[in-house]
């Protein structure tokens, strides 16, 4: 399947081109960019990132672990102090808080790896469409389409201010 790559300087036209391509029914699109651009955040996938679920679950596991570990250990090794309860919630809130952050943070890292598909491939093995230019200043919009659509995609990319269009895979 032919893969066409348009190279851009700015994110605005990339978003415009990708939206037009999506509207015309092209679904196999990829954008490579040197940094995060808000304009490109939801162009290919409008759903919020799944990382948020990881953070939430990690945080919840953390808070439950923090409180339950402290309470269980206080009951398992009871120290009688002035007739007060063995398990004391206010100081254990610190443990609960710390573990919420700890587990939430580690889960966020795992979420980034799983949702973002990292490590990608066999580390150094890049997509054919990837170029070091995309870790310089330029943005790439890559479209896989059938042979009959190549001319249409080429024209659309050029019409949206792509400064170069090339065929990565014929």
């Amino acid at each position: 399947m032919p893969t066409i790559r348009g190279i851009y300087d700015f994110p605005g036209p990339v978003a415009e081109a990708a939206t037009k391509l999506k509207n015309r029914g092209f679904s196999d699109l990829e954008i490579y960019s040197p940094c995060a651009f808000p304009e490109l955040d939801s162009v290919l996938d409008e759903k919020p990132s799944g990382v948020r679920v990881w953070t939430l679950i990690g945080g919840l596991i953390g808070v439950v672990t923090g409180y339950s570990v402290a309470i269980w250990m206080a009951l398992d090794w009871p120290i009688m102090v002035g007739g007060k309860p063995f398990a004391s919630i206010p100081p254990y809130t610190i443990i609960g808080f710390e573990l919420t952050i700890l587990f939430g943070g580690i889960a966020t890292l795992l979420g980034l790896l799983v949702v973002g598909g990292l490590p990608y491939g066999k580390f150094g093995e890049m997509d054919k469409a990837y170029s070091p230019r995309f870790s310089a200043d330029e943005i790439g919009l890559v479209v896989s389409c059938s042979e009959r659509d190549v001319a249409e995609v080429d024209a659309l990319l050029r019409a949206t201010a792509a400064k170069e269009v090339d065929l990565v895979e014929a």
Binding site: Y32, S33, C35, D41, L44, V51, P119
Partner: peptide, 25 residues
Amino acid sequence: SLGWQGTSLQWKSHTRSVLHLSGLA
């Protein structure tokens, strides 16, 4: 770099992770 290529999915996950970590930190 874990094979980072700067794809839209990678950046979206990255931005969201940084936001969440900022919220936690």
